[in-house]
């Protein structure tokens, strides 16, 4: 009886603690982690590495439920590979953030444009005089100023994972002096936004912060990047779907003449980082082709990559 108890105890101890940690070479099958299909990060990432209909995601992929879940799962799996945002990748010591095509994933590299696994979050407003009233124009410009140039606005964007340029940190109290309307009651005004769905969380947070400061209401109807230009300055600018500010989670195309708008430009950059387990001995850098092959199931084992 005592002997069997001891054996059980030892077994449990072994199971709980695992083998003694030693430098093991990463080998065996690659566990490919992905966000579920409704994730905006996934859509953006798969576009970068061209995981599309013709070359779809490998069927053996493991779905995780959130960016944080991705970090947990990959940090528990020596054979795992996944992708998440820069903040989460940096915060977790058991994750190794890979450089992409030789460029390290850092804020500097994202902002100077050398780190390519990143996309700008752009906005554009309507043209002068095309707002429903001059007052509406002033309110919208105040919000855009808040989002792009105020300490408070940029903080909100950062908290939603956006990477912002340093130096845009004028206090809102200073900025708001430019908009005399805000001194009065402006709760009857509604800012309408549209365009990219990826910007949803950061724009919503910014609008909520703006509402708390000024009382201005908002209405978001985001349907996709191409509608950002279309509904402010393009074909739909006078339709029922018209909006005051349009967003695109990519650079504006040449035919999208955003210079017509009062303000246009990026309010932050969104970066995706490919991560592996910190114990991974095979990878430190990811190339587009390598990641494409892993995510489409062409490369199945770490040994193939180690060669």
């Amino acid at each position: 009886m005592k002997k069997s108890l001891a054996i059980v105890a030892v077994l449990i101890a072994v199971l709980l603690t695992g083998c003694t940690p030693k430098e093991v070479k990463t080998t065996g099958n690659i566990s490919v982690y992905t966000r579920d299909a409704s994730s905006g990060t996934r859509t953006a990432f798969f576009e970068f590495i061209s995981v599309v209909e013709a070359t779809p995601l490998t069927a053996s992929a493991i779905e995780v439920t959130s960016a944080a879940d991705m970090a947990t799962k990959v940090s528990a799996d020596e054979n795992g590979i996944g992708y998440t945002n820069m903040e989460i990748a940096a915060a977790n010591p058991s994750l190794l953030a890979l450089s992409y095509n030789g460029v390290a994933a850092s804020e500097t590299n994202v902002l100077n444009g050398t780190y390519k696994l990143a996309r700008p979050f752009n906005l554009v407003t309507r043209a002068t005089g095309t707002f429903s009233s001059p007052e509406q124009e002033q309110i919208v410009l105040a919000f855009v100023d808040f989002l792009m140039n105020s300490t408070e606005g940029q903080e909100v964007v950062t908290s939603k994972g956006g990477i912002v340029e340093a130096g845009k940190d004028t206090a809102w109290d200073t900025l708001k002096a430019k908009y005399p309307l805000l001194a009065g009651d402006v709760s009857t005004y509604t800012i309408k936004t549209g365009g990219s769905t990826s910007v949803d969380s950061s724009v919503k947070a910014a609008l909520e912060a703006f509402q708390a400061l000024t009382g201005v209401k908002f209405e978001m109807n985001h349907t996709g990047s191409s509608d950002g230009f279309k509904r402010t300055l393009g074909a739909d600018k006078d339709s029922v779907n018209a909006v005051d500010v349009g967003f695109a989670s990519r650079a504006f195309k040449a035919e999208e003449t955003v210079a017509l708008g009062i303000v246009s430009g990026a309010y932050c950059v969104d970066a995706i980082v490919v991560v592996v387990n910190a114990k991974n001995t095979v990878l430190t850098d990811a190339t587009t082709e390598m990641i494409h092959n892993i995510y489409t199931g062409v490369t199945k084992t770490w040994d193939e990559l180690a060669k």
């Binding site: 072994v14 695992g18 083998c19 099958n29 528990a76 054979n79 795992g80």
Partner: peptide, 24 residues
Amino acid sequence: AAGSITVMVKNLGAMLSIQTAGGS
């Protein structure tokens, strides 16, 4: 479960030389 059952399953798998997805 995510913190300890998966670890146990992962180690059990390793003992039997079966690779698991971090125990999930």
